[in-house]
């Protein structure tokens, strides 16, 4: 059975948290910790996808900026060119994409509108579920 990004969103929900480009990296770190997540979509108005920022950006950023990091702004560390996927993409396509580009989080867009974000863990979980369902059908 072919699992798609839409299936993943159905399981994990369409809710995703966002951070403003003007927030500090300390505030961003607190959001990650509170929500127990690894990345957030950056948006100044709640709709526009300005960028994406992850725990990796913080960890690697510390090496570069040291004690200055915590007070810097999200906009200074975020990735601006954001790769996205669509609900119809298959899980295997996304697995391939994430492996090739070495990325762990992909925002999901439908008709230009941001509808969610999926992580590598979500994708692996969905892949396992799909395999399990195929095995039961066989």
């Amino acid at each position: 059975m072919v699992m798609t990004v839409a299936n993943v969103l159905k399981i994990k929900g369409r809710i995703y948290t966002t951070v403003k480009p003007t927030e500090t990296l300390r505030e961003f770190a607190q959001h990650l910790k509170d929500d127990r997540i690894g990345a957030m979509v950056v948006t100044h108005d709640g709709d526009t996808l300005d960028g994406i920022i992850s725990e990796r950006d913080l960890a690697y950023g510390l090496a570069k900026y040291g004690e200055k990091l915590a007070d810097m702004k999200v906009s200074e560390l975020m990735t601006k060119v954001v790769l996205v996927c669509s609900p119809e993409d298959s899980i295997e396509e996304v697995m391939d994409f994430m492996t090739q580009r070495r990325i762990r989080h992909l925002p999901v867009k439908e008709d230009g509108e941001l509808i969610g974000i999926i992580s590598m863990s979500d994708v692996v979980k969905a892949h396992l579920t799909g395999r399990l369902m195929s095995a039961r059908l066989a």
Binding site: L25, R26, A29, Q30, L32, K33, G38, E55, R56, L58, A59, Y60, L62, E67, K68, L69, A70, D71
Partner: peptide, 15 residues
């Protein structure tokens, strides 16, 4: 990297 990232919240510039 998650431990480092989350610690930015608690330790800020002292991290």
């Amino acid at each position: 990297e998650r431990d480092v990232a989350y610690a930015v919240a608690a330790h800020a510039s002292r991290l």
